[in-house]
Design a protein around this nucleic acid. Structure first.
Lengths: 336, 336
DNA sequence: TTGAAAGCGTTACCAA
DNA sequence: TTGGTAACGCTTTCAA
């Protein structure tokens, strides 16, 4: 509860001097500065963020909007963002949309737009035209991580090319009968990601002259259990594929477990490749197209911080993050 | 950038009236209120959180301190907290300690103590005496979720009793040679949790007159891969246990995978029980002592909000959250 | 190098 | 039911 003039009084200086001394601004004598610091420490004084935000116009806070906090991608991105923010002494305000379409309006209005952040970073979600307009009218730097959103710059892998490369890996191994596990993500609200990945799958299949069978286009809802279930179902039919491309590692692991359920060997009877390089991928020997959401998050934060710094002109272009193949033991040539 | 007096001017009323009208306070005529609302909407006015915080003393923000965001327990608790906060129109400021001891001091001072929150909820972490003192001197409601912290009320399961019950389950099934996978959690900074759980394991063993063998006291660092590795090692020795109690489901799953690595059947050759009821537990058929961090988080938030509401006198006592046994297919009587 | 004082955008109290 | 006006706790400009 001690505020700046308590310190000023105790140190025998003006509040202006206290402010300057504590923030490390120039034009304060060493003697004064150290005295002020000592006094502030003794009194346990910490400046009120709200008040300095009001006075200076900078809140030193970044807003982060997430569709949920319980998915690997978001966690990693969050950690990356956080690391960068901490380095810049920024705090993080977390807005969790938690897949509740109904609440978005409120979250947007009551929270995001309340000028309590200097910049906004959104993970993998789409905005309605009205939301986008409001955001832009707020006038502060914004970036999206994870899925392309029209009208806002973003950072993310080339979804289509990544899925194509995954499929290509299987084709190169000699597979010709390949299934795809895709499907919408209820929580991650960006529809384009799964669509683009499926498109990449199609690209590769068609380029190789392979048939895309409708009954081998599965939906695993971006989670292990549903993926396992649909793959099990597929494996029960007379004809089955020799390989599976999954839109995410969690779904790929579900596919591996389904193979075991069905008494099949991986990669002997069935090859499986995923996308992500999830924490668990290595434990399951999963071959995957790796991406690094931690780094994507960190980069996003860094770009926003640069924009705020005002030294460099803000970059308006999106960034394509890298992805690369990691071969483990879940893929091998098919046994003819 | 529109602020309250823009609205006042445009609506032809005073800023005081605008403030009242928009916040739904009484003593505003219906006509005035609706006119003000319309104007505010047209102008896209949203009150500045910082300014109202300054003036009113309430920031409508809750601080949440986490050791990391990439563990199941924290995710679930965060979602629970978030749900409750949203209901009360509160925002969440996330302070990620990210296991960096070095940074804590800065995070504490520069962020947590900056009066930008009305209350504080801490997940599973310990405080140094100095930190605790600073927190208390801040004077706002605080609660800890997940691990007992002396000097601050908390919400959490009875760690010791829960581990005891897990062990007891195996003993009841007839197991006599039981190993324990515990070990510190690098990220979750509360040392008491793993200690109390191991104590519970010991309790049950001793009560049943069973030997606790030092070479069967493993450390799995609260993660799948390390657990799998140490269990594999143990299973390679001449004498091996017939069952394992793991301090967490992630470690229990590691143990199950190790069993498979070693060519053992679960539960035929080895029974495994965990603690948590992690998202993946069901997929692995893992028997476990379930707890509900979502609910613990929600309850914590609710208690703080109640405190802030000031209607009921603040509750000073800690809350013991429930845990219960879920039997799946990873445990069975030993084969003699 | 230091201090005085004018904001910053609200809320809340007291008058009208 | 409304309006005027001190706070709120800082930052920042301008003078000293």
């Amino acid at each position: 509860m001690t505020s700046i003039d308590d310190v000023a009084r105790a140190a025998g200086v003006s509040i202006a001097t206290v402010s300057r001394a504590l923030r490390g601004l120039p034009n304060v004598s060493d003697a004064t500065r150290s005295r002020v610091k000592t006094v502030a420490d003794e009194l346990g004084y910490v400046a009120s963020a709200g008040a300095s935000g009001l006075a200076s116009g900078r809140t030193l806070t970044m807003g982060v909007v997430v569709p949920s906090v319980s998915r690997w991608f978001y966690q990693m991105a969050l950690e990356g963002i956080d690391e960068e923010l901490r380095r810049a002494n920024y705090d993080m305000m977390l807005f969790n949309l938690a897949a509740r379409k109904g609440d978005r309006e409120r979250v947007f209005h009551r929270s995001i737009l309340r000028k309590r952040t200097d910049a906004l970073i959104a993970l993998c979600l789409e905005f309605t035209p009205s939301e986008r307009e409001q955001l832009l009218s707020l006038g502060h730097p914004t970036i999206v991580i994870g899925g392309p959103v029209k009208g806002i710059r973003h950072i993310g892998i080339d979804e289509r090319a990544t899925a194509r490369a995954a499929t290509q890996h299987l084709i190169t191994l000699g597979h010709r009968r390949i299934a795809h596990v895709g499907g919408d993500d209820d929580e991650g609200l960006n529809r384009r990601v799964p669509l683009d990945r499926r498109r990449g799958f199609r690209d590769a299949m068609e380029a190789a002259g392979l048939a895309v069978r409708p009954e081998w286009l599965l939906s695993g809802r971006f989670s292990l259990a549903p993926s396992r279930a649909v793959v099990n179902e597929m494996l029960a039919s007379a004809e089955r594929p020799t390989a599976i491309v999954a839109n995410s590692d969690e779904m790929a692991i579900g596919a591996i477990m389904a193979a075991h359920d069905s008494g099949l060997q991986v990669p002997g009877d069935l090859s499986v490749i995923g996308i992500d390089n999830h924490d668990l991928a290595e434990s399951f020997g999963l071959t995957t197209m790796a991406q690094d959401p931690f780094e994507q998050g960190a980069l996003g934060a860094r770009i926003l911080l640069d924009d705020l710094g005002g030294i460099v002109p803000p970059r308006r272009t999106s960034v394509t993050a890298p992805s690369h193949l990691i071969v483990r033991t879940s893929t091998a040539p098919p046994i003819h």
